[in-house]
Design a protein around this nucleic acid. Structure first.
Length: 465
RNA sequence: GGCGGCUUAGCCAAGUGGUAAGGCGGAGGUCUGCAAAACCUCUAUUCUCCGGUUCGAGUCCGGAAGCCGCCUCCA
């Protein structure tokens, strides 16, 4: 079955047809490392994680590039305020970013190019654009002339005549030929301090849009398969990328454009500027696990706005608990008599899971298949109608979909001798019918996030999710 | 003002014109020292509203209301 995705360019679902048969090349707009990212930012990276994992699930090789914007107005201003170099400043947030995506189990991309390491390539592209008459220079600043690029607006479907001049178009924009022209290169001024590059274009620094054009083409080629980002990037960022890239190469830039909707808080987009954001760290300090956040961010379709509440994270944690309990309980189950139904349930789930995700990554439908499967297998287990062989195949099926979902506990969260000792102690208390003592041990462990369950095959423990 | 999106149960959320998936929460039951987990039963005569097309509309068409986003360095 083929994967169909909604292309922002055509606003229709289109079948993914990779340029290289079995390999998918994708560019995913990454963070500006000027602060801790908030979970709204991670919503987009989570969608991209779902996409790349599902592509791999389907057997594709994936080459994903995610840029790190480590030079812009904010990083320069903040590093200067703190009296440290730009590198020192951005390093902290690059590190935090990778810590966060690791906790969220967002799989690492193949490349994380930083803007500051690609300045010479950016300068070359500007020179090409000038040579082609698509860019011009005013007082050391270089701008892209959108009137020279006929296709401008094809992604966002924006008619330039309809653009309302933005409040930010101000005195510092110098003498652009057209109000909508955008900066490719910014001449140094005193606010930039020691952040500048001496180049053929003069002393200055690159504009934001340029890095994505340069770095995507450097690592993926002039035309590649998929380009993604948040909906707020459609205009102007991605529109500008297309103008620069196609203007420079004369070739199509990306074949499929995918955009994820925003995370919403109290009815507003989560944003630094609205001061309504939560970082992953803040959510975790409230007692929620990163994997619960993963579930919450992953479980709503990417083109649907997702309203963030702590109730929602709690509900996600509970759903996750059902999923993980299923796996653990089935792992410990001693097989019974086959009823012959398990194979059918496994097939139905695996088929439904893939078919659902093939349909523009319909994760809700895919999860519904998984939960149906969990109920079906649990029923067989409760009736003792699941053979050991079927049990193992069911576990394998769950592990297979978990290569995409990645909700199962990691092995390194293993046995803790102290807990085992307390379970032992509690077993003794229970034997003597000292339930007060037994319950106290259970309650104490619960305070530490350890849940005990008495089962026919002994007491088991698990971590609170 | 221009462009786009959304509105389905207490909450979240799927839904090719054929009679409302799934999750959370809640109620009852089985099991259990008590719990937990698991299983069983129940929890939307109806999809923001008003028209229309159709044998049949959550789904298509028209209109209204409410909400959200983008409109020049936001994921």
């Amino acid at each position: 079955m083929a994967l169909r995705l909604t292309n922002t360019m055509t606003r229709k679902q289109e079948e993914l047809k990779p340029i290289d048969d079995n390999r998918v090349r994708m560019y995913t707009c990454g963070p500006t490392v000027h602060d801790f990212a908030h979970i709204g930012n991670y919503r987009t990276y989570m969608f991209e994680d779902l996409l790349r994992r599902f592509l791999k699930y389907k057997g594709y090789e994936v080459i994903q590039v995610m840029n790190l914007t480590d030079v812009d107005d904010k990083t320069i201003r903040k590093s200067r305020e703190q009296g440290i170099t730009l590198d020192e400043y951005t390093e902290k947030y690059k590190k935090a970013f990778f810590e966060d995506i690791d906790m969220l189990r967002i799989e690492r991309a193949e490349h994380y190019p930083a803007a500051t390491e690609h300045v010479s390539e950016m300068v070359e592209m500007i020179k090409t654009l000038v040579k082609k008459g698509l860019a011009y220079e005013v007082e050391g600043n270089y701008y892209f002339s959108i009137s020279k690029f006929n296709d401008y607006g094809k992604l966002s479907h924006i008619d330039l005549e309809g653009l309302k001049p933005g409040a930010r178009v101000a005195a510092d924009e110098y003498e652009k030929e057209s109000i909508s022209d955008f900066a490719l290169w910014k001449a140094w001024d005193e606010n930039d301090g020691d952040v500048y590059w001496e180049t053929d274009l003069g002393k200055g620094r690159p504009g934001w849009h340029l890095e994505c054009s340069v770095m995507s083409m450097k690592y993926l080629g002039e035309t590649f398969d998929i380009h993604t980002g948040g909906v707020d990037n459609i205009f102007p960022h991605h529109e500008n990328e297309i103008a620069q890239s196609e203007g420079a190469t004369g070739k199509p830039f990306a074949n499929l454009w995918l955009h994820s909707e925003h995370l919403i808080v109290d009815g507003r987009k989560m944003a630094k500027s609205l001061n309504n954001f939560y970082t992953l760290r803040e959510v975790m300090e409230k007692g929620f696990s990163a994997v619960a956040v993963r579930y919450a961010l992953l479980s709503t379709h990417y083109r649907q706005q997702l309203n963030f509440t702590f109730e929602r994270i709690a509900a996600a944690a509970n759903a996750l608990e059902r999923y993980i309990d299923f796996y653990n309980n089935l792992s410990d189950y001693k097989g019974g008599q086959s009823s012959g139904k398990a194979e059918k349930y496994i097939e139905k789930m695996l088929t439904g899971f893939e078919t659902s995700l093939d349909d523009d990554l319909n994760i809700s439908a895919a999860l519904a298949e998984v939960f149906d499967f969990i109920r079906d297998i649990n029923r067989l287990k409760a009736e003792n109608k699941l053979s050991d062989d079927e049990r193992i195949r069911a576990l394998d099926a769950l592990k297979k979909v978990d290569t995409v979902l990645d909700f199962l506990p990691r092995d390194d969260e293993g046995i803790d001798a102290e807990i085992e000792a307390l379970i032992q102690k509690r077993a003794e208390a229970k034997k003597q019918r000292n339930f007060t003592e037994a319950d106290k041990i259970r309650d104490d462990l619960l305070q530490k996030g350890i849940i005990l369950e008495d089962t026919p095959s002994g007491t088991k423990w698990k971590r609170k999710i």
